[in-house]
Design a protein around this nucleic acid. Structure first.
Lengths: 345, 345
DNA sequence: CTTTCCATTTAGATCGATCTAAAAGCTTTT
DNA sequence: AAAAGCTTTTAGATCGATCTAAATGGAAAG
């Protein structure tokens, strides 16, 4: 029955060392799995750690080693399942690398984002993965870089000089429009909402591109409410234009789900006399009726990519900036059909 | 143009103190907003911090002060929007208290949960909010408590001696059954899935209670698949029993959404000739058709409660164990109707 | 038997804050 | 003028690890 009562009764490396009859330095080497220590010594130290119930004090280590084994993750909003999945991907890779995630929520506000980054710095994170708030100026990220804080942008990108992991939104949009076009649709609307940021602009660009190159009107862009609950009620907006669309591409699946319900309320049959295509391919796409055709963006994978970019940068800070842009995949289900009514051509 | 190039060129409190002509101790007091320092001195030190671009080193502070301003959060799964919302509530309260969240994912596996908690300890978190993995034994949590690590259980509870923030699941279930009963339903099924834990058992208990006390058959409990995509296809399970139900209560909204689709596929009209009621009241409840009647559990609020419990405990570790159990609220929409067909009484 | 070399081990300084207990300046009281 | 009581400031030890540079011991080489 070991007899240890120091005043504060916390087991330190020094206690372990004493018990194993080695110096504190040797014990430290054992923890860090250095190849320098002899096999027999290592075993003795490990035994001592077990016996004493030693807990590594990361805080002390970080102070000396200037390495915290900690990664900051800043997202605009946790309530959105999309970011939650991103976070999940990040967490799994960071965890596997033996580090932990410090989480922060910017609320998509540049001002809060400033505060949050400051806090990250104070906590001494080794690097940060950030989905920049919509109104972030490029100088912001460059300032971080000047701090010497390794940074990775996820989903949205502000600066080209900083690593980025995302999705080829524009190509995804082209794919969506292409699918509708192949079903005979020519008058296609684009339903959007939310703040303006790179991921927003790329989608717009992809949509207009695809429409324009086919000689279709690329300007049928409709803004729907940001509040999920109000989207179904806004379906009528689709038909207030002179040129009534026969199909709609949605900025994301929240809009798609909402409009699908709204169109149903208006008496239209989605997939039969009106076509609708979503973006993100959330789980619900498969369990609503009609099943939602959607462009998959797989945020978990993006998170994994972002985390890997950061880990690479940590091990070599001089790496040139890289971007990992994932391809989308169109998941065809039931919400799109050939153009309805008497054929126009 | 200040001329500072130390070898490592990091601004420390000592540099600030020198610049402001005070001692390191005084500078430290200024940072910590101690009322002891004079107004003029404080201003001078703050000015110096600004000029030098000083960044507080939380790591150093924590080592000495044995306080990390860090809270661990352990959830079984981040992909589930339910836990993401919980996390969001926790984060906002913790952030407002000037602390940060260290995140970990147990994958609902007791073994991983062990590792994760160990890591939390190494990182010196001040406390942990945990939604215990399904197979957690009470000894596990008690061991943590022995470590002297302040703990709060969220959503699920294993030990009665430890703070808990959750929802009155049983009452929510009684409410759901009550609503259906008031519409004339007597043969009501309960569709469940997932691992067994306290939140699961309480729902079962609430259901059986409510059924039994009305003299209805409390045993119509149906297990549906865990995979979201397979739920719609399992709707037929509802009718394989001798006694065919006229309504179903769902364990959560994922099941409700899935069965709603599945029942539609079987040619039933939910809300007209079959009633269905969900649990959780997710955002999608309002944007599917028919709109889903659901029992609201508001996980964000639970997260906030859990965080507040932890903060209280941090400021007074001797507080007796407390439990904050939120009431549910039934959100009536369209998916339930009076019992169909020729009246039975 | 000394010297060289290698593999291990170690003493002591160090990271950047906080804490303790006491000192230094003030007024105010005796 | 000394003592007492404030308020404000400070020196120096301390938290628990890592790092540096040097010491130690044994085997191989001379």
């Amino acid at each position: 029955m070991p007899f240890e009562d120091k005043k504060k009764n916390r087991v330190t490396l020094l206690d372990v060392a004493a018990r194993a009859n080695v110096s504190r330095a040797t014990a430290s080497l054992v923890i860090r799995k250095s190849p320098l220590v002899g096999t027999e010594t290592r075993a003795r130290v490990e035994e001592a750690m077990r016996e004493l119930g030693y807990v590594y004090n990361m805080g002390a280590a970080r102070l000396r080693a200037e390495r915290s084994h900690t990664v900051g993750v800043v997202v605009p909003n946790l309530t959105n399942p999309f970011f939650a999945e991103l976070l999940s991907g990040i967490e799994s890779v960071i965890d596997a690398a033996g580090m932990v995630v410090i989480l922060a929520n910017s609320g998509d506000l540049a001002e809060r984002q400033d505060m949050v980054m400051q806090r990250m710095r104070e906590h001494g994170v080794d690097g940060v993965i950030i989905c920049p708030a919509a109104a972030t100026e490029p100088e912001f990220l460059d300032r971080m870089a000047e701090w010497g804080l390794p940074l990775v942008q996820a989903l949205r990108h502000i600066s080209d000089d900083i690593d980025y992991a995302g999705v080829d939104y524009a190509a995804g949009m082209r794919e969506a429009v292409g699918h509708l076009a192949s079903l005979g649709h020519r008058r296609i609307a684009f339903a959007v909402h939310g703040p303006v940021h790179s991921a927003y602009l790329e989608r717009i660009e992809g949509f207009r591109d695809a429409m324009f190159s086919r000689g279709f009107d690329p300007d049928l862009i409709i803004r729907v409410p940001d509040q999920t609950a109000q989207i179904p009620g806004s379906a009528h907006l689709l038909f207030e234009n002179r040129e009534k669309p026969t199909a709609v591409v949605c900025f994301n699946d929240v809009i798609a789900l909402g409009l699908s319900a709204g169109l149903h309320d208006l008496g239209l049959k989605v997939g039969e006399n009106f076509s609708l295509i979503g973006f993100d391919d959330v789980t619900e796409a498969d369990i609503i009726r009609p099943r939602l055709t959607s462009v998959s963006t797989a945020p978990v994978t993006i998170g994994e990519n972002a985390a890997r970019l950061l880990l690479d940068r940590l091990s070599d800070p001089l790496l040139p900036p890289r971007r990992v842009v994932k391809e989308t995949r169109l998941h065809i289900r039931q919400s799109c059909g050939p153009i309805a009514g008497p054929a126009r051509y």
